[in-house]
């Protein structure tokens, strides 16, 4: 046996391992998942209102004009971060509906009192069933739903200022 070769062996094994790991890294492995519901109608649902806002039902989404549906919760930090952007979207003429997931009415009311309420209707989804109806993997997520109630676009995570024109364009596209 060649001694030099043996001493080289660990390096070669490690190189192989490294190539494998680097290869694995190249693959997308995001934990967030794009909704499989984009392009499909929202399943029928009817949620009660919360914080003085009227409730939200599937029929409200098929109202003839595109709307934004924002899935949020009072316990979610990015939801607070995106509040000014939601307000900006509303000021630019977008219609927003909210779905509060796994929350209590008091906390939702307190959250909206502190961060502002840009929503026309808010559905209270204490079981979190709407996450699956929209194909969401977490909160916050924002969906563009067209006039026939079909989901056209999904925005994952918080809306940052640079996303506002993007969402307005998606709304325009869904018209």
């Amino acid at each position: 046996m060649n001694r030099r070769l043996i001493l080289l062996l660990p390096l070669l094994l490690f190189a192989g391992l490294l190539i494998f790991m680097a290869g694995n890294l190249g693959k997308p492995q995001e934990a967030v998942v794009r909704s499989h519901m984009v392009g499909k109608p929202v399943a029928d649902f009817a949620l009660e209102g919360v914080a003085g806002a009227p409730g939200l039902a599937a029929s409200d989404l098929a109202s003839g004009k595109p709307v934004l549906v924002n899935i949020f919760a009072s316990w979610c930090l990015p939801c607070a971060v995106e509040a000014p952007q939601l307000q900006a979207l509303k000021d630019k003429g977008a219609t927003l509906h909210g779905i509060a997931v796994r929350d209590t009415p008091e906390k939702v009311a307190a959250f909206l009192a502190r961060h502002g309420n840009p929503f026309q209707r808010i559905g209270n989804d204490d079981g979190g069933r709407m996450l699956i109806a929209f194909g969401a993997s977490g909160v916050p997520e924002t969906y563009v739903v067209d006039g026939e109630g079909i989901i056209r676009h999904q925005h994952l995570g918080e809306i940052r200022p640079e996303h506002v024109p993007e969402l307005l364009a998606e709304l325009e596209k869904a018209r």
């Binding site: 030099r4 001493l7 660990p10 390096l11 490690f14 190189a15």
Partner: peptide
């Protein structure tokens, strides 16, 4: 680090 150390080793 590991590659460097193993090279020195070899």
């Amino acid at each position: 680090y590991i590659g460097g150390a193993l090279t020195i080793y070899a």
